[in-house]
Computed example of a mutant assay.
Amino acid sequence: MLNDLLRTQDGVITLEQAYASGLSLPAVQRRVQSGNWMRCSRGVYFVDDRPFTNAARVRAAVWGYGERATASGLAAAWWHGLTRFAPDVVDVTMPRTGHGRCHEKTRLRRRDLDPSDVASVRGLRVTARPLTILEAAIKRRGGIELMDGALQHDIELRELWRAQLRNKGRYGSPAARILLQAAGDGARSAAERVLVKLLREAGITGWRTNHPVGGYKVDVGFPVQQIAIETDGWAFHSDQDAFQVDRRRQNDLSLLGWQVLRFTWLDLTEYPQRVIATIRRAISVREQSPRDRPRAEITGGGR
């Protein structure tokens, strides 16, 4: 029974679990004194006959705060399989009335979680996937991609909103709300507004919004250089029909002699410098290439 428990718990065991497996306190102490067991924190041990893996480290860190402690933030995201790498510092949430000081290489937050925001995954209490996604998305670079990927698979936007509303006062709540609003149905318009802001801040002129080209209106057009910039919202909004329409539109614009650049919400918000550099390069190349196209006189900034 003890071996089975240790195998499923990454070699980590609590004192209560050791008692339930038939060990007495002196028996546990003998194992620690002999070096077979390593004490991780009060009442939490690691059986030192196997590698101390990231899973063991996260489990021991959470259990060190007691049975009501919950892995949260990036630790929970990794435990759920939402991120590839385990964080160096383990985020732990415990009730406001809980006792215990912060342990080394952990980050403790005290707040009472709704039961629907807690899940048990491989025997460890972790924040449920919706709340985990919200917290992880604002803690790491590429958090938007993490949220968008979850929305493309097994999470619905309304689930994230419900978790957000249940936890309005938590750390990072305003930033998560902004992400959720951006992920709404108006995401494409929001992406266009971000693009316009980037162009103005970069001092790039000669562009027009909603510029008509061949029966279409491109999000941002450079009439002189014949560059069309199209923005996409979040990938989870896309479907096969929309994909086909966008590609047909792009082909038609290309046949009219326009270069089409596409940027996603992720590009615009996470990699704005890369976006501006790409636009500047496209403008430079088009201005250096002689073409038989009309060159309208453009003055001032975009509009």
Rank of each mutant, 00 (worst) to 15 (best):
L266E: 07
A163M: 09
T269D: 12
L198N: 07
K139I: 00
L195M: 14
W37M: 05
T264Y: 08
S284L: 00
I144D: 06
R141I: 00
E145M: 06
Q29G: 00
D241W: 14
V194Q: 06
T127K: 07
L198W: 13
T8E: 15
C40Y: 10
I138S: 08
I279W: 07
L124T: 05
N54S: 07
T278W: 03
R200K: 09
D252P: 00
V285F: 07
A182K: 04
V194E: 06
A56P: 12
R262C: 08
A296G: 07
E104D: 15
L131C: 11
W63M: 13
D49C: 00
A163G: 08
L113A: 02
A77Q: 03
L199K: 02
A235P: 02
R170C: 09
W63C: 04
Y216C: 00
Q152N: 12
D239H: 15
I227T: 01
D185E: 14
N167E: 10
L157W: 04
W79H: 12
W161R: 15
R249K: 15
R208K: 12
S41Y: 10
T97C: 08
P51H: 10
F52A: 08
L74V: 03
G172I: 02
N251R: 15
A27Q: 12
A202V: 10
S41D: 14
V213I: 10
L199H: 07
R141Q: 09
T127D: 12
L131R: 04
G81W: 07
R96H: 09
G73D: 03
R200L: 10
G221S: 08
L165R: 04
S116F: 07
A175D: 14
V32M: 06
I227C: 05
G143K: 03
R166L: 15
K197G: 09
N3T: 14
G64Q: 10
T264P: 13
P174L: 13
V245S: 09
W78E: 03
R303M: 06
W258D: 02
V90C: 10
R122W: 06
G43H: 09
N54A: 08
R68N: 07
R166H: 15
A282D: 01
R141V: 01
T93M: 05
V220C: 13
I227Y: 02
L82Y: 02
A119S: 13
E104T: 13
R7A: 15
M38V: 07
Q164I: 02
R177E: 11
R50P: 08
F243A: 13
A86I: 00
D4C: 15
R249I: 01
T231R: 04
L165S: 01
V47M: 01
R42D: 13
A76H: 03
V260W: 03
F222Y: 09
A228E: 04
L23M: 15
L256K: 15
L195R: 01
A187T: 10
G221D: 06
T299Q: 14
Y19H: 15
L256G: 11
R59H: 12
I227K: 05
L198F: 14
G300Q: 06
T132L: 09
I155L: 13
L179R: 02
D112A: 02
P51N: 09
L266A: 15
Q259W: 15
R208Q: 11
R31M: 03
D48L: 00
L266I: 12
